[in-house]
């Protein structure tokens, strides 16, 4: 079993994610290998909240060219976690 800290890489704070907070939805960048149930468990364990729903999406790495060598930036996985009304996660607090 993976540790919660290994699954949740960092909170994503962007314009879009801030507007999602209104629906009590928190966005994280997560380990691409993790699945929804793992993410749900990790968030519940780490922040002591009740998760109702998890949506995930993969962000493909962008093509980057350096002279003729083609490379890719790493792929990311985002997870949008809906919490039970009333629950909060401190690091997003105040937004």
């Amino acid at each position: 079993m993976k540790f919660a800290q290994d699954i949740l890489i960092k909170p994503m704070i962007t314009e879009k994610s801030t507007s999602l907070l209104e629906g009590n939805k928190y966005t994280f960048q997560v380990d691409p290998r993790s699945n929804k149930s793992e993410i749900k468990r990790a968030v519940e364990e780490l922040f002591k909240v009740k998760v109702l729903d998890v949506h995930t999406l993969r962000v493909k790495g962008k093509l980057k060219r350096r002279r003729n060598a083609i490379g890719r930036t790493p792929e990311k996985k985002k997870a949008i976690v809906t919490l039970k009304p009333g629950d909060k996660i401190e690091i997003f607090e105040g937004v």
């Binding site: 994503m12 704070i13 314009e15 994610s17």
Partner: peptide
Amino acid sequence: VPGFRRGKVPRVI
């Protein structure tokens, strides 16, 4: 601020 367009950043951030 990364993640925000100019003028769109909330005050807290």
